[in-house]
């Protein structure tokens, strides 16, 4: 490599279930250049220093949502975070907080995926619509009501930022509730009542205490805290008016 090559120390939280009782830190000295991401640093470790280090990655350009990890304690996409910003101090990478560690930097996403399926993350039309009726029309303002919340890439950084999820994994969590709001807020959708059965439960919007860190760490500007908390008002109105509004009682 070039003469301006620098060496950075990367501490990796290792966990190999077949040999480690609990996670342990292991330090690697990685030569790097200013254009290298943390993910590239890990790839260097895997290719040249220690082939046993496990981590997830795919696109390398902040759209697949695979490479989220704790970098110096903050949830970040490792492809979007650069080694140069941690030089000369070095950095520590750990598996995403609040999620079970499967191996090294790989977390168990089962809970997330199960919840994701449960909220019906697709448009449920208000009424059946024939092809000849044409496309759905939507004004730019109607689109603005949900567009931001549709940018989620399921990277789970917001789950690593949410202490309420960490304290109580039954809580649906920021990302999926934001996605739920994305469909509920879509003018073409009519599935609010079905989805809000979960939304109005303790495991739904009410599990949130408005910490707000989820929105801070989101690499796509989704703002889950807003998606969730604006629904508390709706949920409260529904709670108090359900007996006087037609069809409001539900469960």
């Amino acid at each position: 490599m070039a003469e301006n090559e620098k060496i950075i120390e990367i501490e990796v939280l290792r966990y190999r279930p077949e040999q480690d009782k609990e996670p342990v830190l292991q330090t690697y000295k990685v030569p790097f250049t200013d254009d290298m991401s943390v993910l590239q640093g890990l790839q260097y470790i895997k290719d040249y220093l220690d082939g046993t280090v496990s981590f997830r990655w795919s696109c390398r350009m902040a759209i697949c949502g695979s490479c989220g990890m704790m970098i110096d304690g903050k949830p970040k996409l490792s492809c979007k975070t650069f080694l140069r910003d941690y030089y000369p101090g070095g950095l520590r990478v750990e598996a995403l907080a609040h999620l079970p560690i499967e191996r090294d930097l790989v977390v168990d996403a089962t809970d997330f995926v199960t919840k994701l399926e449960s909220i019906k993350p697709y448009i449920i039309p208000k009424e059946p619509r024939a092809l000849e009726q044409g496309e759905y029309l939507q004004t730019p303002q109607q689109r603005d009501m949900y567009e931001q919340f549709s940018s989620c890439i399921n990277c789970m950084l917001c789950y690593a930022a949410c202490p309420q999820y960490g304290l109580n994994p039954k809580f649906t969590g920021p990302g999926i509730l934001a996605l739920m709001h994305r469909y509920n807020a879509d003018s073409r959708d009519g599935g609010q009542a079905e989805r809000n059965e979960l939304g109005y439960a303790d495991e739904g919007y009410w599990g949130c205490t408005a910490v707000g860190y989820c929105s801070e760490v989101c690499p796509k500007g989704v703002d889950p805290a807003n998606a969730i908390n604006q629904n508390k008002m709706n949920s409260a109105i529904n709670y108090f008016t359900r007996f006087v509004t037609p069809g409001g009682a539900g469960k």
């Binding site: 279930p17 079970p100 202490p163 304290l167 860190y213 801070e216």
Partner: peptide
């Protein structure tokens, strides 16, 4: 399976990040 997912403790979580300290 050799799976043994490791769940980390939440003890003292609010000290982990200045953002959490402001929240508390």
């Amino acid at each position: 399976s050799n799976r043994r997912p490791y769940v980390r403790s939440m003890d003292g979580w609010w000290k982990r990040d200045p953002y959490f300290i402001r929240y508390m």
